[in-house]
């Protein structure tokens, strides 16, 4: 049984069709890149998987069951934008997460924050955008989830920190868990990906193993993406 399955998934807002017939099966133990240009439906798909939007047609199954309260325990989701109360200190947010999620490991969060030189007594609104993003990522990666979904985890951070974040993702997800990363910073992440999904105008146009794609097309995922999506 696939960890995550999307079956004939459609989403439209009014008469604007955002996603068209998305079919997807994500197995355990894979890191998958969800790649596409801006405004092609990546975040909409992610929101459907997280039960934050309702499909117009089709269904999303997590471990064989329709999404709902149970799937929120299985999936650790890093949204594009923060939803945390920024007047809280990092310590308070850790407590908040510990109260909210049974599978949250506070010890691990504190360790990762220390590695990143983040001060747990600091308030979020006193931190830079990049620092806030790091805190969010640490919180998400400190949950013992089966599926991590990271929507643009690298957007606001410097290249050195990007590398650290990728290593954090690589070394901190549960064995047997899968990770879906949406981004357009392909070059930075391709070394850690197993598979890529290219999405364009609301459709999946390619879902393949990275090394197979590199071998067949003779180039980096970044180059293949640029070629496929040439404006």
């Amino acid at each position: 049984m696939a960890l995550l399955e999307c079956k004939h998934l459609y989403k439209n807002f009014g008469d604007r069709q955002i996603l068209t017939d998305i079919n997807l099966a994500i197995p355990e133990g894979k890191i998958i890149g969800l790649l596409g240009k801006n405004g092609t439906g990546k975040s909409t798909l992610i929101k459907l998987i997280n039960d934050l939007l309702t499909p117009s047609e089709g269904e999303v199954l997590v471990k064989g069951l329709p999404v709902g309260v149970e799937s929120k325990e299985i999936i650790a989701y890093l949204p594009e934008r923060t939803y945390l109360d920024k007047s809280m200190t990092v310590n308070q947010v850790i407590q908040f997460f510990a109260d909210f999620y049974r599978n949250f490991d506070s010890e691990k969060a504190r360790k990762l924050l220390a590695d990143l030189d983040l001060d747990p007594t600091q308030k979020l609104n006193k931190m830079s955008k990049g620092m806030q993003e790091k805190v969010q990522l640490v919180l998400v990666m400190s949950r013992k989830a089966d599926l991590y979904i990271l929507d643009e985890p690298l957007g606001g951070v410097d290249p050195a920190t990007r590398d650290y974040i990728l290593d954090t993702i690589l070394t901190n997800f549960n064995e047997g868990a899968s990770v879906i990363i949406s981004t357009h910073l392909i070059q930075d992440i391709e070394r850690i990906l197993d598979e890529v999904i290219f999405i364009d105008k609301g459709k999946i146009i390619c879902h393949e193993e990275c090394d197979t794609l590199r071998e067949r097309e003779g180039g980096s995922i970044d180059a293949i993406f640029r070629r496929m999506f040439k404006c």
């Binding site: 890191i31 990728l166 070394t171």
Partner: peptide
């Protein structure tokens, strides 16, 4: 595999392959 993957900073599946 897991140690090697960490060492080379690659995905464990890639290391396995």
């Amino acid at each position: 595999v897991r140690e090697l993957a960490l060492m080379h900073k690659v995905n464990p599946n890639t290391m396995q392959k």
